[in-house]
């Protein structure tokens, strides 16, 4: 499905106000058949709104919040940690509290930072499902939730990393961290060589999502 359909995203009950008729909203997939679970998502949402569990505005605002989260917030945290050793110590102590210092809401589920060095490379996975520091780096990519990644990352991490184009020297220890619903991880990538004179904004722009998962280096 292409981005051109994004105008449909804020459909929740807009039909009440829409001049084009009572039900102009089409399911998301004009070009693909709708599924049982899509119907269920629509129906459960409408029922919860009718029951005042939440309002249509609450639902819209939450979808907008999800859309607003991106790896940029995590990247800002990493860049600050590179520049400020004291801040990095606080990140390693408690990511959630350190994020608050930057005005970033990392949520209440603890996130542990694991730092890449010249002797250790860290990778995160959730073998059981998809736990991920979403509030810092957005929704996880599909491959993070895939059977291949979940199964193999803990068994043959170096091979998996090679599939991402990442070669880790044999003398560097690879540590794989298996996330849970109660504890998530964030990788602090190594600051790239040649970045010594860069500003905080420039450093922030260097930090990628995949480097904070640990499947790539910078």
């Amino acid at each position: 499905m292409s981005d051109s359909h994004s105008h449909d995203h804020d459909h929740d009950h807009d039909h009440l106000h829409n001049p084009h008729g009572p039900h102009p909203y089409q399911p998301d997939l004009e070009d693909a058949p709708f599924t049982h679970c899509q119907l269920m998502a629509e129906a459960v949402g409408e029922l919860l709104i009718e029951k005042d569990v939440f309002s249509a505005d609450d639902l819209r605002a939450m979808i907008e919040l999800i859309d607003s989260k991106s790896p940029a917030e995590g990247a800002r945290l990493i860049a600050r940690a590179w520049l400020d050793a004291d801040f990095k110590a606080r990140v390693l102590e408690n990511v959630n509290d350190a994020a608050t210092e930057l005005g970033i809401d990392a949520g209440t589920i603890p996130i542990r930072a694991v730092e890449n060095t010249d002797t250790v490379h860290n990778v995160i996975v959730c073998t059981l499902c998809s736990c991920y520091p979403r509030l810092l780096i957005g929704l996880p990519p599909d491959w993070y939730k895939s059977r291949s990644y979940r199964s193999r990352a803990v068994r043959e991490p170096r091979t998996v990393l090679k599939e991402f184009g990442t070669h880790i020297d044999d003398n560097i220890e690879v540590r794989v961290h298996d996330s849970t619903a109660d504890l998530r991880y964030l990788v602090i990538p190594e600051r790239p060589q040649g970045s010594e004179t860069m500003s905080e904004d420039e450093l922030t722009s260097l930090v990628t999502r995949d480097s904070m998962i640990g499947v790539t280096t910078l």
């Binding site: 998301d28 997939l29 679970c37 919860l48 939450m62 073998t127 990519p141 491959w143 979940r150 199964s151």
Partner: peptide, 29 residues
């Protein structure tokens, strides 16, 4: 499934469908 055999990791990016974001939003609410 940690530790089981599986094929290579397919790295394509995913554009979230509106209903998927709706599902996520319902859960968070």
């Amino acid at each position: 499934m940690g530790g089981l055999d599986a094929g290579p990791v397919e790295q394509g990016e995913h554009v979230y469908d509106p209903w998927e974001k709706r599902t996520d939003a319902i859960m968070r609410l």
